[in-house]
Amino acid sequence: MRSKKKQSIGQRAKGKDNFLRRVFFLTLYALCTLHFALCSDSHADVLDRIVAIVNKEVVLQSEYQKALNTARKSDVNISEARVLDEMINRILLLEQAKRLRPGNSSNKAADDDALVKEYIEKRIKSSIHVPIEEIEAFYTNNTERFSGKEFLEVKDEIEDILVVGKLRLKLLEHIKELRDNAYIRVRLSAGPDLP
């Protein structure tokens, strides 16, 4: 019994040794992998890069990522391409706005937004005219929406609705024109080398 017990203790000890050896080599392997993953140049972190060139401006990956994160807070399904497209459109509009208002020295995003808004108001919205016939037609076709209110009561409201619709169309048209005449290069991932 004793010898059996001794043998069993010896076997168990040997088994423990093997276990320790396995732990040792596994640990060594894990540490090596971690070390090379963190220290090796071949796996260096990309800190930033250019993802889009829009005439003389660029969109950086950091900016794009920030915009994507913000956009996905309100719409989780928004595509990467759409976010980048919106950034490009904003650059094009801002470029036009600055051309009309040179001397704006700030680079604060809030100021830029105000400038773009002002540009849209003055350059695009101001040219929109809604004829009275169109307002009347809208009123006639949507009487239930205005729950028996007189035309004159809702005229301004209808005009605003129609202006917003027209503005959207005009803005899209304007952006298309700007994009057609712009130099735009997009590389969301690092693209192939040039010939």
Binding site: L38, H43, A44, D45, L47, D48, R49, V58, L60, R187
Partner: peptide, 27 residues
Amino acid sequence: DEDELAIGIKRAFRKGIFYDIQAVSGP
């Protein structure tokens, strides 16, 4: 500083000779 890097990349782009400037780091 990542903000300084972003400004720097944009500044270097103004040279007008780059398609891309990628900054990578490692210990």
